[in-house]
């Protein structure tokens, strides 16, 4: 059994790829290189900080004219809007304005930002139009989406009979191949690491470990207020993108919207 363990900086964090499979070194390098290219591509498309990204183009122009976007972007948008509808707007990617005002997101591009909500996004096939000016930030889903896409690429490239493990970890957004036999560390309220067994292939954890004051900070699109929590919130789901987005739903609504968790086969935990 051969293995590779690499880590590169993308999506504003560290992306760790681990593959253990019956294959050559060359194949492991080739497959992990391509997985990083996929992540780099999503990083370029979805970065709020880069003026040339699809997010920045939409924020600047989609109110004036319909903008054509990539398939990756429509997938992220469609899921985000679906989750906004299911949670009565508790989850909403149109939150960049508030994130900037509260200092959680820098205003690199010097746009005038707006606080209109997801109801104003129109998608038709691969074209997006805003009925009112909006400020999108897909930071709450893009990492999970990137992890899923790179993971599925690796799984398809290798013969699964020869694979014993694949894991991708983008700063706490995790997806595993052999998840039933896998454990991860999650920091608790005191920021000490505790081991937990995975309950689904995908996991996302939100904690305040790196935030000011070490508290978890999530901005509520409904109340317009920032919620602070001491605990760490983890969501297990089949897809990492679902887990990633649902951590915000838990932070902002507690145990509400159980049917949403059922829909995505998700479980949550606070510690």
């Amino acid at each position: 059994m051969n293995q590779i363990k690499r880590c590169q900086p993308f999506l504003g964090t560290f992306v760790d790829i681990y593959i253990e499979a019956e294959t050559s070194d060359e194949k492991l390098i080739e497959v992990s290189n391509e997985a990083y290219s996929i992540i780099a591509d999503i990083h370029r498309k979805m970065s709020f900080h880069e003026a040339s990204s699809e997010v920045s183009r939409l924020n600047e122009s989609a109110y004036r004219e319909p903008i054509k976007v990539s398939q990756d972007f429509t997938q992220v948008l469609n899921f985000s809007i679906e989750l906004s509808i299911l949670t009565d707007g508790i989850f909403d990617i149109c939150i960049a304005n508030e994130l900037m005002e509260s200092g959680l997101l820098p205003n690199h591009n010097n746009y005038k930002h707006h606080s209109n909500r997801y109801e104003n996004i129109e998608i038709e096939d691969d074209t997006v139009f805003f009925k009112k000016p909006l400020s999108l930030d897909v930071g709450g889903v893009a990492k999970g989406y990137a992890v899923d896409k790179a993971f599925e690429y690796i799984v398809n490239k290798l013969d699964s009979a020869n694979v014993s493990q694949i894991s991708i970890n983008a700063g706490g957004d995790i997806r595993y191949f052999d998840w039933e036999n896998s454990w991860v560390y999650i920091p608790n309220q005191n920021k000490n690491l505790k081991p937990y067994q995975l309950l689904r292939p995908g996991l996302a954890t939100s904690s305040g470990y790196y935030s000011p004051g070490n508290n978890l900070q999530v901005f509520s699109p409904v109340t317009g207020k920032q919620v602070e929590a001491k605990e760490t919130i983890s969501v297990f789901a089949d897809k990492c993108m679902h887990a990633d987005a649902l951590t915000k739903v838990v932070a902002l609504s507690g145990g509400k919207y159980r049917c949403v968790f059922d829909k995505y086969n998700a479980l949550y935990m606070k510690n």
Binding site: P9, G12, G171, G172, V184, L203, Y209, Y210, S234
Partner: peptide, 20 residues
């Protein structure tokens, strides 16, 4: 060293700004 069995830490989204 992180354990052989537990290879990942979730929930520590560290910014890679220092790397940049």
């Amino acid at each position: 060293e992180l354990d052989d069995q537990i290879k990942n830490i979730s929930g520590a989204t560290m910014s890679c700004r220092h790397i940049t």
